[in-house]
Design a protein around this nucleic acid. Structure first.
Lengths: 334, 334
DNA sequence: TTTACAAATGAAAGCGCTTTCATTTGCATT
DNA sequence: AATGCAAATGAAAGCGCTTTCATTTGTAAA
């Protein structure tokens, strides 16, 4: 491997000068720069990023924590983050937290050990206090899909309340009045907010929220199926079912169909997230677009701007608005 | 940050000794080891992985190239690879090649610049020659889902021919005789092999392969839909449709349904890969399990064993056998 | 006790860069 | 030509480790 030393010799300048033309932060005369660039090209020089990191105390790497590497929900976000950062020459170390407190902490620890310059976290299980403490360390921390007041400008999140509202509103607009709801786990902020939105939509339409038409699930498919069964068990008819995410909507649809219910004719279903497979479902799922990739983009730009002082990368907003995606699973009641 | 120097002072030993207890490759007397470990614990010492890398000429990082970060096909593999390697304290740098030659080369270049100790590549667009040349460099290269004779022991792949055979065989076993096939792009090895398997199954059942009942797609959903339309255009009836992957199966099913064809009663469909959403489709897709995560596991273990000399991590096989996943989309013809 | 040899430890030279600080160069002004 | 000052460059000290090689220590045999 050719080193900076050989370049400096070939170009007849000092190490410092070569370093300067590489980094471009200090003025170098044009004549010198050309000599150096020529030498680099001729020797096929590639800077050793590890040595750069050690000397500059910058690893040029960003840690990304997601709940799971598989599953459509995170795929797009990872994709966006990786894309933005790699184009800027940074690299992304991805870890999975599996929505488990200890595993999330381990993963963060790992990223810290790796001397990441910044962490982009989709942390679900870890407490606000832990994250606040973490942000006191010398890494920059930004949060995705979560909002903590004290670090609000580093949080990138969906307006979940609005999303929940839009989902239920869509059903109401179609003429539904008996609307059931399968919630996400209410210890999670986003699940709670979506439910709030649901309630607001009901209130605006003068429909009383009926606790018996609501069950709490865990965001997984099985719980959608279970939830549906629980809801039918109380013997209060409903013509529309709003689910706090697409997985549960899928489970509920399957369960309903197995019981001979025709969808959407006898039961309309609305999901949330618009993950990839939403359009593979039958009928294609009407859902709420959760702009997770935009959040990833925002977070990556924030990092470039604030950590790497990249002037061009300006992020513009922290709050992303969800919107209704109209497909086939929501129709007017019979 | 506390450095090795402070630890050595606190423990009253030299830098070298501290380094030795960390790495454990050279004998250190028990008494000394205890002193050092105590000092480390008390100071809360964390080795600086970047300095380690520079000094040892080992980055302890493994580059992983996939076609896309999103999509279910790669999710499981990334998940497995990350898991195995992180548990061994290595980190994974993930990049996406988007099935494009130039992008794949760029990504590999990036990983090389990052001084990865090994590369795990799911490279689709780059030539065999390029990969062979790459494997001459001082990184260790292993391939996923691809086989190159000259580096066979570093290749981890599915028996695609067998998979293709099993898919078609399953249809034949149900009594189908008129079987159409939507292939993947035939410049890709795996697509070609799957088609071979299809032909073998037909041959064994004394069914003549009819080129008109075969179209070549690009592994994407739309091409499944287009493919179906093309197949129906030739006016040769078929009762079963084998698709070279699940995406195209989904597309074909949608297209068929839109034309009023009942699935599986009027048309049986078999996919390939068993990606996550296969079970979300309606009807649930009968398909071939493509053990991509096992390949990821095998590749990761290989790296641990050969690059990091981890004795415990023995991989066992390079060739993975696919198997039939029976669900609802394949039934006997009417 | 002396000797021999292996085991344990330490001193110090890197690894390939960045960056500070001192020095030199170039250029406009007197 | 002499002066002053900013711009450009170079020398060298790290960054926090690993590893080689030399030295010291411990142990068993003579």
């Amino acid at each position: 491997m050719v080193t900076i030393y050989e370049v400096s010799k070939a170009a007849g300048v000092s190490l410092a000068t070569v370093s300067r033309v590489m980094n471009g932060n200090v003025k170098v005369s044009d004549r010198t720069r050309q000599k150096v660039l020529k030498a680099m090209a001729e020797l096929g020089y590639k800077p050793n990023s590890i040595a750069q990191s050690l000397a500059s105390n910058r690893s040029n790497s960003v840690g990304l924590l997601v709940s799971a590497l598989h599953g459509s929900f995170f795929g797009n976000m990872m994709s966006t983050v990786e894309d933005v950062l790699r184009k800027a020459g940074k690299h992304v170390v991805i870890t999975a937290g599996h929505s488990d407190e200890q595993q999330e902490k381990n993963a963060i620890e790992f990223l810290l050990d790796r001397r990441c310059d910044a962490l982009i976290l989709h942390a679900e299980a870890v407490s606000d206090e832990y994250l606040l403490e973490l942000s006191q360390c010398d890494v920059e921390v930004v949060l995705i899909n979560r909002r903590i007041e004290q670090m609000a400008e580093r949080c990138f999140y969906t307006d979940n309340e609005l999303g929940g509202y839009l989902a239920t509103k869509a059903a109401i607009d179609k003429g539904h009045r008996d609307i059931a709801y399968i919630s996400g786990p209410l210890f999670k902020q986003d699940a709670k907010e979506r439910l709030e939105g649901h309630k607001r939509a009901l209130r605006e339409a003068n429909i009383t929220f009926d606790p018996e038409l609501m069950v709490e699930g865990g965001f997984h498919e099985e719980e959608g199926a279970q939830g549906y069964l629980q809801l039918t068990a109380v013997n209060k008819p409903f013509t529309a079912l709003i689910c706090a995410n697409d997985e549960m909507a899928s489970g509920a649809m399957t369960a309903a169909r197995e019981r001979g219910v025709r969808i959407p004719e006898q039961l309309s279903v609305v999901g949330f997230d618009d993950v990839l497979f939403a359009r593979y479902l039958y009928p294609k799922l009407t859902t709420i677009d959760n702009p997770i990739q935009k959040m990833g983009n925002g977070a990556a730009l924030w990092v470039l701007e604030h950590v790497y002082k990249d002037k061009k990368s300006r992020h513009h907003t922290n709050l992303f608005a969800p919107k209704l995606i109209v497909r086939d699973s929501l129709v007017a009641p019979e």
